[in-house]
Amino acid sequence: MIKRKKIETPEFNTTALPDIIFMLLFFFMVVTVIRKENENIKIILPSVSHAEQIEQDDNYVFLSIDKKDDDKIVYHMNNQKFNELLHLKSALALFKKKSNNTQSIIAKIKIEKSLALAIVNQVKRLLQELEIYRLEYLVKRK
């Protein structure tokens, strides 16, 4: 009697487990946005009280301006690093050439909050020269 009972103990039914995991997997696959930006850039963004959350748009170029420890300015475009503004300009011009919809390129800009406006204005001027007129400044919301 006792022996039989032990044998009959049912196993855990795990057939539904893959289904549940697949469901979660699909959920995360759908909501994941793989970012183009370089995660190594540690920029402290300015925090403001009002900002917008914008839908993702594919036609963008990611720019960042940062300051090194020795106060030298470093520019990034997508994953490329530039020390000179001129090099950034030629890279941007090339990017624009390759892009098929040049009118709607959005420049998403991440700028270290303590930088002087003169440096920011140089980059803005550069974008104007390249006829990239749509900007989005990345900020932190208070």
Partner: peptide
């Protein structure tokens, strides 16, 4: 499936970024 799930969980960022949009004038 677990392996894939963990990968996507790690790469997902829920927090949407905040932007201030601006249009530059032509030179």
């Amino acid at each position: 499936a677990f392996l894939l799930l963990i990968f996507f969980m790690v790469t997902t960022s829920f927090e949407r970024e905040n932007y201030i949009p601006m249009n530059l004038p032509p030179l």
